[in-house]
Design a protein around this nucleic acid. Structure first.
Lengths: 116, 116
DNA sequence: CTCTCATATGTTTATCTGTTCATATGATAC
DNA sequence: GTATCATATGAACAGATAAACATATGAGAG
């Protein structure tokens, strides 16, 4: 914020103005970063991937991924708070599944990028 | 990892086996998380969004987003290392642009999720 | 009621990450 | 050569965060 010298000398002001106009609001961009942050953890990605196939209970997920139950529970909470998974209680068990198709498509899109 | 009691009691073993079979390798999942981690920062998202429109030099990006030149430079390095942006030198200036279309589509997909 | 099991939650700790500050590089102008 | 400007880099500090541990809740079985 110290650099007071360069007053858009390098590019045309019009370009800069256009960019500013077309940028989503600050808050949207913040929310978007928050969303990606959720995907940015391998434990959470693994959980989501596991749920691609089937709804699973906490204990199964933990064993499947070889992660402690506590860790899974904490991460499931994060995923649930951010509406990426939903859950259904059945007796002592809680079954989790993906909240919607966007979750799949975002992950697949990311995977495409990795695989090229 | 302490929970030795629950041995896949809750769901059928077949489901669990199917899930295990269809899971990508550990390393792929890790890379995927790493990719999303890059998008999981509002400064970087802002930079990428700014580059949707046009190629821009470091100083312009900094002013545009009201972030210090140093911070932008650091983040551009992260983006470049991870092949999300590319750069072109021209005299004193370095112009950055998006590396490929995947970047756009991943971000747009995320934005769709936000906007519903 | 008590006991057990599945899950959740609070707290602490260790690690990671983004920003700032100071400084270095590299290019142009003089 | 020196001065200036754009960018990059290294180090340090502050805030975020994921995991581990201990503990709590809540449901079913007896």
């Amino acid at each position: 914020m110290e650099n007071e010298k360069c007053e858009y000398l390098c590019v045309h002001e019009d370009t800069v103005k256009k960019v500013i106009n077309d940028m989503p609001e600050e808050e949207k961009l913040y929310d978007l970063a928050e969303l990606f942050k959720i995907f940015g953890d391998s434990t959470r990605i693994k959980i989501l991937y596991a749920l691609f196939e089937a709804e699973l209970c906490v204990c199964d997920i933990a064993q499947l991924l070889n992660v402690s139950q506590t860790a899974v529970s904490h991460q499931l909470r994060v995923l649930k708070t951010n509406k990426l998974v939903k859950c259904r209680k059945e007796g002592k068990n809680v079954f989790y599944s993906l909240a919607d198709d966007h979750v799949c498509s975002i992950i697949n899109q990311g995977m495409d990028h990795i695989n090229e």
